[in-house]
């Protein structure tokens, strides 16, 4: 019995020793991984490739967006703000950002990256930041020309120069009659509920949208949507335009504090209220929502176009204004019999 006890004790001490070594090795691994996150390795590689070895590692960098979000993209993309002299060949990650082709400014220094490029601004791990996990629900990274979709964070389609493709996409959307089935509503107002509400579906990838337009059953086998393959067979450009617009539908406008002047919600308000003001002077009732069709049509509907000095009363407008008569069938596209 005594001997048995001794061998047992020897065995458990040996197991204890081995598990102790295993435990310490694991802890070492945890510390190595925790103390060397991938962004530090990118910054080290930036130092070597840019011959900036003597500079200290810059650490986590961020851009505060007006929407309250944070972009940490410049932690790894350290060359964004640089203007390289032609001698230095910068690797892809450390590329410099071109000047904005539309405004000529380097506005990206203030506005951050995710507004136009999508992706997850707070993330510091590559596959999270770029959202390239193949999940359609994530906010995937966008490249030129799809970055134009990001304009809707602050502007209405076509409101500013440099959004030609986005505006063209919006017009294609109207012309193809997508609204007949896909309502664009924010608060459950307006439109038919035949297809999914495109404002309330998660961001889809470019490939997903392209597939859905060319062969709707590719992504959802029970789809009854007609194929638009013939429409786009000779117009690849138009397809891209429409996809830019479709992407823009899933992006939220930035809060009004951010860009008072250009905020789409406010812009819609000012356009619609020329006819449809409530008691507060703001758009009321069903005109509160961001109805794209209304935006387009209301450009023609400003009473001040004809009535420069005095506004007509609503009843007067209903009975005699030819624009209101034209406006009616357009309403019925979204508003059924109302």
């Amino acid at each position: 019995m005594d001997l048995d006890l001794k061998t047992d004790a020897k065995r458990i001490y040996l197991a204890f020793l081995f598990s102790g070594v295993f435990f310490l090795a694991t802890l070492g691994l945890v510390f190595y991984q925790g103390l060397y996150p991938s962004w530090i390795r990118w910054q080290q590689s930036y130092q070597t490739s840019m011959a900036d070895i003597n500079q200290p590692i810059p650490g986590i960098k961020k851009i505060n967006l007006c929407s309250g979000e944070i972009d940490r993209c410049t932690t790894c993309h350290l060359g964004i703000h640089r203007r390289y002299t032609s001698q230095i060949e910068a690797p892809g990650v450390f590329r410099s950002h071109p000047d904005n082709p539309y405004t000529g400014s380097r506005a990206h220094q203030k506005r951050g990256c995710t507004a136009c490029h999508g992706g997850s601004g707070r993330a510091l791990v590559r596959h999270h930041a770029h959202a390239i996990e193949g999940q359609p629900s994530r906010d995937p990274l966008m490249d030129v020309p799809y970055t134009q979709a990001g304009c809707v964070h602050c502007h209405l389609p076509g409101q500013q120069p440099g959004q030609q493709r986005l505006a063209r996409g919006a017009l294609i959307f109207l012309r193809l009659g997508c609204l007949m089935c896909h309502p664009l509503k924010d608060d459950g107002l307006g439109g038919f509920d035949y297809g999914p509400n495109l404002r309330q579906t998660p961001r889809k990838s470019v490939a997903y949208l392209e597939n859905s337009l060319i062969d709707p059953t590719a992504n959802f086998s029970k789809s009854t949507m007609p194929s638009f393959a013939a429409t786009f067979s000779h117009q690849k450009e138009s397809l891209t335009d429409l996809i830019i617009f479709l992407i823009s539908l899933s992006l939220d406008p930035y809060p009004s504090a951010c860009t008072q002047k250009n905020n789409p919600a406010i812009a819609v308000d000012t356009i619609c209220t020329s006819c449809h003001a409530g008691s507060s002077g703001k758009a009321s009732g069903r005109f509160q929502h961001r109805c794209l069709y209304l935006i387009q049509r209301s450009l023609e509907l400003k009473c001040s176009r004809c009535h420069e000095d005095s506004m007509p009363s609503p009843n007067q407008a209903k009975s005699s204004c030819p624009l209101v008569e034209r406006h009616k069938p357009n309403c019925q596209v979204c508003h059924q019999s109302r």
């Binding site: 047992d8 004790a9 458990i12 001490y13 197991a15 204890f16 598990s19 102790g20 295993f22 435990f23 090795a25 694991t26 802890l27």
Partner: peptide, 17 residues
């Protein structure tokens, strides 16, 4: 000690690891 307690410590370390 040691028969129960060393066993327990071993299992603890293995689980944490």
């Amino acid at each position: 000690y040691p028969h129960l307690i060393i066993r327990e410590l071993t299992i603890t370390m293995v689980v944490v690891a």
